[in-house]
Simulated scan of single mutants.
Amino acid sequence: MGAIWNSIQIVYTALAVIPILPFAIVLFGYGAIVQNRKKALIMAMDVSTVFFILCVSALFNIMFKSSFGLYGILLVMILAGGLLGNAQFRKRGSVDVKRVLRAIWRLSFFVTSALYLLFMLISLSKIVFTVA
């Protein structure tokens, strides 16, 4: 039982550290099943957003020596949801919560993937240029 648990931990660690892996796995695996690239891309974005959020929050905590990374991301997502819901209410007179949540979730994919690339480049450059 311990070997199975260790292998699950190793797989999760690899997926959490490199969130592009779950994106590619879902994109190609689900794409092969449904034979629809658009559905596969959307599913891959939705699944890998969790991994991007966790990885970016960990990188933020390491870079800035704080523990606010995850809370900051969640705070920005809640504020963006409130702003988007308010805009939808002003335009239509009602709020479609499902659409707002989906929009915030997909926007957070793009923002966290860009932050992931930025933080990884900064971290790697710190490692390379401090050693040399």
Rank of each mutant, 00 (worst) to 15 (best):
Y30N: 06
C55H: 05
M63V: 14
L41H: 08
D96T: 08
M1K: 15
L27P: 06
G85I: 00
A16C: 11
L15R: 04
L118P: 00
M63T: 08
G85Y: 04
G81M: 02
M63H: 09
V47S: 03
L83D: 06
S67E: 15
V11Q: 13
G29S: 07
V50C: 05
Y12R: 09
V97E: 08
L118A: 10
M45W: 02
L74D: 01
M1D: 12
A3Y: 15
L70V: 12
S7R: 10
K91N: 10
A58Y: 02
I4M: 13
L121N: 09
L15W: 06
N6S: 13
V95R: 05
N36Q: 13
A87Q: 14
L118H: 03
V47R: 03
R106L: 14
A87T: 08
A132K: 12
Q88R: 12
K91T: 08
S67N: 14
I62K: 06
L107I: 14
A44W: 00
M77C: 15
I20T: 05
M45Q: 14
L117C: 08
A24I: 13
I104A: 07
L79R: 06
G29Y: 02
F52P: 01
A32M: 09
A40K: 06
L41M: 13
G82A: 05
Y30T: 05
K65Y: 14
N6C: 07
L101H: 09
A16S: 13
I4R: 09
S125I: 04
R102M: 09
D96W: 09
A44H: 01
L121I: 13
F110D: 03
D46T: 11
L15A: 07
T130F: 14
V131P: 07
V56C: 03
W105H: 09
T130E: 12
G85E: 03
V56M: 03
Q35M: 08
M63C: 04
A58E: 14
S108G: 06
G93H: 07
G93P: 04
K65C: 06
D96N: 08
L54A: 15
A132M: 14
I18P: 02
L59H: 05
